[in-house]
Amino acid sequence: MSLLELKNVYKIYGELHALDDVNLKVEKGEWVSIMGPSGSGKSTMMNIIGCMDKPTKGEVLLDGVDISKQSKKNLTAIRRDKIGLIFQQFHLVNYLTAVENVMLAQYYHSIPDEKEALEALERVGLADRAKHLPSQLSGGEQQRVCVARALINYPEIILADEPTGNLDEANEEIVVDLFNKLHQDGTTLIVVTHDPEVAEVAQRKIVLRSGKITKVEENRNFTGKIRFDD
């Protein structure tokens, strides 16, 4: 059984089909990237997989559970237990330090554990920035805090919606390296990106256009390392 399966999924806003009969399977431990022009439905799909939205029609099976039929309350619990989210705009709580931001995810999941949170920051190379506020961190550092926050509760899937959209190449590489580490640890990754270089790293690349999957590309020489053209 696949970890995630979308069956004939539609998301319809009035006349607009943001998702139009999407079918997709993602296996456990797989690293998938999603590309597509702006407005093609990438975020809509991620929100549905991330239990923050429901499809208009269709089934979304996560670990065998149809999340399109769950109550809001159950979706919150599923999101808390199985999903790690990473956003383009980082979304850190601005009055909490890096380590406190990581501990916030622990707090809602189970109980905050500062030692474990510090270890997570160490994994993303930010042990020395633990007591800094988001405003005292660079964009790349903030996104690494977000990665630490997303991985802290050992989620089944990490969903990243344009995680490198606000980063320079150096930080892009750092984040992709972190994804590779997560991948090696067996975490399932779905990464939405505009950036072909980031998309190429994944094991499978999916292209969305007007709410439909128009292209699926397997990466035959997967290394987990980013390659810059120039």
Binding site: T76, R79, R80, H91, V93, N94, L104, A105, H109
Partner: peptide, 16 residues
């Protein structure tokens, strides 16, 4: 609102 949304996204229930 953003912070509330974030807290919910990472698993905060309405009660919390």
């Amino acid at each position: 609102r953003k912070e509330i949304g974030l807290r919910k996204a990472i698993g905060a229930s309405d009660t919390s």
